[in-house]
């Protein structure tokens, strides 16, 4: 198995050798699609984009897609362990702290992990909040729809944005999240519009119906004569005798509907969670819908 990761490292190094501009030999970037989820031209476009971001911020950006499951690459229980192993044993990252961000997907079991090693910049630019916002977009907006190119493109763009925020002195956090704020604003606008529409519909629709029912009720007060169709008042005291009271069970039918859970460890259903180790920070989960 170690051979496989050596191979991965060699592959990354080869890609870097041909793609990295001369001026930044120590800048690493890569899109390694071993599962073939994107086309060659898409992989090339992604690599170009990753290179631009890496150069602009002096920061490693890596994506790897493995065809097997987490456990098929070694004695790993979790994708975080695999990601750390791959990152640690590959010639990736910038500087002594190996600064970079790594998105790993294992296709067979449908897990993903976003890993950043510990460093002042990595921890600042890609806090738990930032990673989870990133995962939310990458997973929910793209991977759930099997749009791998979109997911990777989005991942690289978000890395670029988050690094820019950090460099500007306002790293992404719950108190500073322009994209989220814009999203919330749009959601609020949409909610307000739908609430306004519902209120208008209620104002226009409910009163006439209520008025009609009230008027029909008033009208019925003027008509009290009518033929009787029952004789309930004339049932003799103790006059009801039941001879058969049978409730026979015939059969049972069953329908099952899958419920979506937030935790991926239960075996599917999507969602993600964040964790931290001595080596770095992770946000991981399942991208199987």
């Amino acid at each position: 198995m170690k051979r496989l990761f050596k191979l991965f490292g060699i592959l990354l190094a080869l890609v870097l050798m041909y793609a990295v501009p001369v001026k930044a030999e120590d800048i690493m970037y890569a899109v390694d699609d071993q599962a073939g989820v994107v086309t060659a031209s898409e992989a090339e476009a992604l690599s170009k984009h990753a290179q631009q971001v890496a150069e602009a911020h002096d920061f490693g950006v890596y994506i790897a897609v493995l065809p097997g499951s987490v456990s098929s690459y070694g004695n790993y229980d979790y994708i975080e362990q695999l990601a750390e192993y791959m990152y640690d044993n590959s010639d990736v990252g910038v500087g002594s702290e190996k600064e970079g961000i790594f998105l790993l997907l294992t296709m067979e079991d449908g897990y993903f992990d976003i890993f950043v090693p510990h460093s002042e910049r990595c921890d600042g630019a890609f806090s738990e909040y930032a990673r989870e916002q990133m995962a939310s977009t990458v997973v929910y907006d793209y991977l759930y729809n099997d749009d791998f190119y979109g997911a990777f493109e989005s991942f690289i763009s978000i890395v670029d944005t988050d690094l820019s925020y950090y460099e500007a002195g306002t790293p992404l956090s719950p108190s500073f999240d322009p994209a989220r704020e814009e999203e919330i604003r749009q959601e609020e606008e949409a909610r307000e519009a739908s609430t306004r529409a519902a209120k208008t519909a209620a104002t226009v629709g409910i009163p006439p119906v209520t008025a009609l029912l009230a008027c029909l009720g008033m009208k019925s007060k003027n008509k009290t004569a009518g033929i009787k169709h029952e004789a309930n008042n004339y049932i003799a005291k103790n006059g009801i005798h039941m001879t058969v009271v049978q409730d026979l069970f015939l059969h049972r039918s069953e329908t099952r509907t899958r419920i979506h859970h937030d935790d991926n460890r239960g075996g599917g259903g999507g969602g993600f969670h964040s964790s931290s180790t001595s080596m770095g920070s992770h946000t991981s989960g399942s991208f199987h819908h």
Binding site: D247, L248, I259, G266
Partner: peptide
């Protein structure tokens, strides 16, 4: 587990008797 299970039980219901009216 991950499933919402809807169970529908089917019954044959029989009632018979007499009602006296006065």
């Amino acid at each position: 587990g991950e499933y919402a299970v809807t169970v529908t039980e089917h019954y044959q219901i029989n009632r018979a008797g007499s009602v006296r009216f006065q």
